[in-house]
Amino acid sequence: MKTCSTLAFLLLGTATLLHAQTAPVPAYVSDAIADSGRPAADKQADAARKPASLVAFAGIKPGDKVADVMPGGGYFTRIFSKVVGASGHVYAVLPESLVAKAPAEKLKPIHALVADPAYSANTSLEVRPYDRLDVGAPLDVVWTSQNYHDVYGGVSVFSVDGSTGPEQAAKLDAAVFKALKPGGVFVVVDHAAAPGSGGRDAHTLHRIDPATVIAQAKAAGFVLEAQSDVLANPQDAHDTLIFAPAIKGHTDKFVLKFRKPSH
């Protein structure tokens, strides 16, 4: 039975990869990525991060309400802001633990972004505990990129006293499920760990087995709709810290798309 389940999972990934690569990228996504206001460093990262394929895969569109959870410097936040437009809204969500423990310098870029007139009309910063993602309106999409392993692994600035990392990640999933409208989408992008390793390497190598993310999301009520290999790197042996010079920026990454059932 386990072999059959694994085969089905791999077949789903193959089908989704084909869809993600052949589906046309909407003009509003292309225009958002081509926006002249994006920082040069962001544009230089596009070749590796493949935002056009990822945003099209997620299905983010004009008018959507999107939460970018743990947005870093705002690489995707800027793109989402231009995609959803004046009729949509982007919520850059920071965990309370991160705001309390991270050096203030680390948070300056996202504060500057939401204050920038080019984005401030439809983009706001929200600070929330892991178990509460209420932003005042049902969300169409919740997105988190290269962060789930930090939450699951209890990495210092993400950790909450009295709660283990896996518990924090489960609380996040439950909060995402509650915040999404029926039919809403949850997208998780992260660095892949070795198959079968679970969350073993989340704290040390900053990697996580996608099967662990899938299991936690399903436990929260989500359905795995699709996955994409657009960021996959089969040359990555999954045994190296993601910051190691030989692999930094080129890790094998998984992309999972979950949906909250409509009923």
Rank of each mutant, 00 (worst) to 15 (best):
C4A: 15
F9K: 12
T14S: 13
T16F: 11
L17N: 08
H19Q: 10
H19A: 11
A23F: 03
P24F: 05
Y28A: 03
Y28N: 11
V29Y: 05
I33A: 09
R38Q: 11
K43P: 01
Q44R: 15
D46V: 03
D46S: 04
S53K: 13
I60D: 00
K61T: 12
K61N: 07
P62M: 02
P62H: 10
G73C: 08
I79S: 02
V84G: 04
G88W: 06
V90Y: 06
A92C: 12
V93I: 15
A100G: 01
K106W: 05
S120N: 12
N122A: 07
L125N: 08
E126Y: 03
P129Q: 11
P129D: 06
V135M: 08
V141N: 04
V141F: 05
V142L: 12
W143E: 01
S145G: 01
Q146R: 06
N147S: 12
N147D: 11
H149S: 12
D150Q: 09
V151R: 00
V157Q: 14
V157D: 13
G162Q: 05
G162M: 03
G165K: 06
P166R: 09
Q168V: 08
L172A: 03
K178P: 00
A179D: 09
L180C: 04
F186H: 10
V188H: 01
V189E: 09
A193C: 03
G198K: 13
A202M: 09
H203S: 15
L205N: 03
H206W: 12
D209V: 08
A211Q: 11
I214M: 03
Q216S: 15
A219G: 08
A220R: 08
A220H: 04
G221A: 12
F222Y: 09
L224K: 07
E225Y: 07
L231Q: 05
A232Y: 09
P234S: 08
P234K: 06
T240H: 04
T240D: 01
A244Q: 10
G249L: 04
G249M: 06
D252C: 06
V255Y: 01
K257T: 01
P261T: 04
H263W: 01
